[in-house]
Design a protein around this nucleic acid. Structure first.
Lengths: 210, 210
DNA sequence: ACATACAGAACGAACGTTCGGTTTGTCCAG
DNA sequence: CTGGACAAACCGAACGTTCGTTCTGTATGT
């Protein structure tokens, strides 16, 4: 017990490092497979090949496919919780505020949603709607993420003279919209059109907020 | 040839009726399975059981699973092309226009998107992103539907003093948003909260249009 | 020494598809 | 009207694959 805690602080042992590296490789392979082949076609075989790891090693680290998906989902949600953007955020004048908010939404689309990770998450999200076993293990994670990121966004944009409840609602709309846009490819192949849609939406939200 | 055409006009022969009924039962079963079990778990076996039809009959009408999904998708898109809502649409004053637009969006959510059919369509949509064979057979249908419904909506809301291009853009946003909301269950279990989100979004769009 | 990391064979179950056989309407020659 | 050829509707067994999981054995770091 104490040893485990102590090791957490210091450099991990070589064996632990191995395990961590292997698990990372596997999860990364899962993300790639989900993005490229979708949930239904993301089989253990495919993951194993993509990760360059034996069947036994995979089952050793992740005893079931469900476990694999739960860990992958958590991994996919984690980096999106980091503060929005680095660098200066000029929000003095209403015009600057508008521009910042627009840029933030475009950034979310390009860096969080319209990415391998964003698409992989959507696959898990859709799959867990009907896979009750998976849903049971993952829904709390999703729900918690939803609240956490909502809190984070509220903090970032408080002081615009907008009530907190309204802020939460508006940013939830943004997340919903961007997620929906991730399935718009089938209807509108043109990527530029989709980007334009993001900008228009961002402008509408910015007008509402600033 | 002429007989086939002649029969199309008059009542179909009994054999054709049989075929049509069977195909309808099958497609209906597919929709139910997609909604309830998702794309990955919608197997031929399950469809056959749900439809109450033998394995042979199913394969006779739909030689492959791909065929089944293509026909189902077309079936799912068809009814959404009907004119928006029946009944009088008071749009004289700006206030009435706002109220009508809001009601239309809520109606879309409740009657088209948040339904068995809407969820089933989402399953096919997500699956066809990575299933290239399916995508190849279905993408044109999706694209055509997108344009058709866009045209229909433009016609309905022209005369509000909004440019046609902007109208198209705004209603595309609506479709994207509502589709995204169909995956919000995982994050927000409360149905009332989702309905409230629809209303808020509708209010924002109405304000933009009227 | 011992636990963990890794390897791969083998498992039964379920998948989508193929195929030969049976039933049932349709249609025209007699 | 009627009989019989024909095609379509329907049936279910069997196919080869692939799935996720289980299990026994080996290598390696602690």
């Amino acid at each position: 017990m104490e040893e485990a805690l102590a090791r957490k602080a210091g450099p991990a042992s070589r064996k632990e490092q191995q395990a961590v590296v292997a698990r990372e490789r596997i999860v990364h392979a899962v993300v790639e497979c989900l993005d490229q082949h979708g949930y239904a076609e993301t089989s253990i075989n495919r993951i194993q090949e993509r990760a360059g790891i034996s069947r036994g090693a995979l089952t050793h680290h992740f005893p079931s496919k469900e476990e694999l998906m739960v860990v992958t989902a958590e991994r996919l949600l984690k980096p999106t919780l980091v503060p929005l953007r680095k660098g200066p955020r000029p929000m003095a004048t209403p015009e600057e505020r508008k521009a910042t908010i627009e840029a933030d939404i475009v950034w979310m689309w390009e860096r969080l949603v319209d990415t391998r990770e964003g698409r992989a998450l959507l696959e898990i999200l859709v799959a867990s709607r009907t896979d009750l076993a998976l849903k049971g293990r993952i829904s709390e994670t999703f729900s918690r993420w939803n609240h956490t990121i909502s809190d984070s966004l509220v903090v970032n944009y408080l002081g615009l003279g907008v009530a907190e409840d309204e802020l939460r609602e508006i940013w939830t709309m943004c997340r919903v919209f961007l997620r929906g846009l991730n399935t718009q490819n089938q209807f509108e192949a043109d990527e530029q059109a989709r980007r334009a849609l993001v900008r228009s939406f961002a402008r509408m939200i910015a007008a509402r907020l600033a």
